[in-house]
Amino acid sequence: MATSVSTTQRPTAQDFLELVERGKRGRLKLYVGFAAGVGKTWRMLEEAHALARRGVDVVGALIETHGRAETAALIGDLEVVPRRKIEYRGVAVEELDLEAVLARAPAVAIVDEIPHTNVPGSRNRKRYQDVLDLLGAGVNVIGALNIQHLESLNDLIARNTGVTVRETVPDSFVEQADQIVNLDLAVEDLVERLRTGKIYPPDKIPWALEHFFRDANLATLRELSLREVAESLDRSAAQRVPLGAPAQRASGRVMVCLSSNPPHALALLRRGSRMAGRLNTDWYVVYVETPREAPARIDAEAQRHLLANVDKARELGAEVVRLKSSDPAAALIDFARAHRVSDVIVGRTNLPWWRRLGRGTVLERLVREGEGLDLHVVSFFEEEPRA
């Protein structure tokens, strides 16, 4: 799906309306920022009112004001679907009422805080999955998220800011967006907004300034946000080939090599997702089951981690392949050559030297025998370990 990205000029309601009129599946527009307070909810509400003035049936499916009076006032006469109340551990929790929005069937739904994790008992585990259901039902969605919630950036952000983001969305979700609007703001202006109480209540401001809202953190996140949107624009331009122009050679695919129970599987998967996104290509996660790793022979914990890693890989947009072989290196090389793989991602082994005697580790053999393959070895320095 092609992605239209705007960073220099402000898209109008008419821009999005033109996208709405194409096709039966709902269209997705995302407002992306680098931190809370850059104005995502405000801009969504402004666009909602602009669409309503044009006669478009638009509702607020989930609007999060974070207690900001100015944002709450901007809702005005916009129709808002009441939230669903779910009791969890004795506490009433409010969530997006997906069933009510689907029954209402508006032309456009506004959905805030897309990376949010739904309370147990909801139809979907994550709010972005609610958005996918709305799109599948033909409802167009305008949503918002911050760049640090992008799954493939999780390890990079943890290393550079010291902040571990728990709620993420897969890159494959963002890649489905028809429009991505980057909301940029000078770091100094954002910090001033925080100090004057326009982002968090007064009691939370000192903590925010000492932790997430440090100048260095914000500068890093702002740079990442600008870069990600620019790369999305590059990928979109590469996909649009003018009629009659010579076809360009497709880039090779990416393959992530996964063992049965690697301690840093998430880092490998995120690296694969990110590389595939930059190359605008498909990617595989390949696990080679050796005779000693047959399901009946590995312990229950390793089997559980393997299944969880497979689910995460599919969530991130990979095609998961399970091979059986007594020679993992040969199986991986054969698969790569048969499926036009150009880039192979592996983790650095920590095996002691006495366990590497003989034919060598899978990594060593990929180096020796993987002629024509670009090998990317992930060191996991300060990467997030397995939970």
Rank of each mutant, 00 (worst) to 15 (best):
T220D: 08
D215V: 15
R235G: 01
D234H: 10
D234T: 13
R249Y: 07
E223W: 03
N217V: 06
S232A: 15
S232R: 11
T220C: 03
V229L: 05
A238N: 09
R214G: 01
S232L: 13
A247Q: 05
S225N: 14
V229M: 00
R214I: 01
R214A: 01
L226I: 08
L221G: 01
L243E: 09
R249I: 13
A237Q: 14
D234R: 12
T220Y: 04
A245V: 02
G244H: 08
A237N: 12
N217K: 06
N217P: 04
D215E: 14
A237T: 12
Q248F: 00
A216T: 03
R227D: 13
A216W: 02
P242Q: 04
E223L: 06
S225R: 02
L221H: 06
L224P: 05
S225A: 12
D234L: 15
R227T: 15
L218M: 03
R214H: 08
S236I: 08
N217W: 03
G244V: 01
R214S: 00
L218F: 14
Q239K: 15
P242A: 04
P242T: 00
R249A: 13
R240V: 15
R214W: 04
D234W: 09
A219S: 01
V229E: 03
A245G: 00
D234I: 15
A216H: 07
E223P: 02
P246R: 00
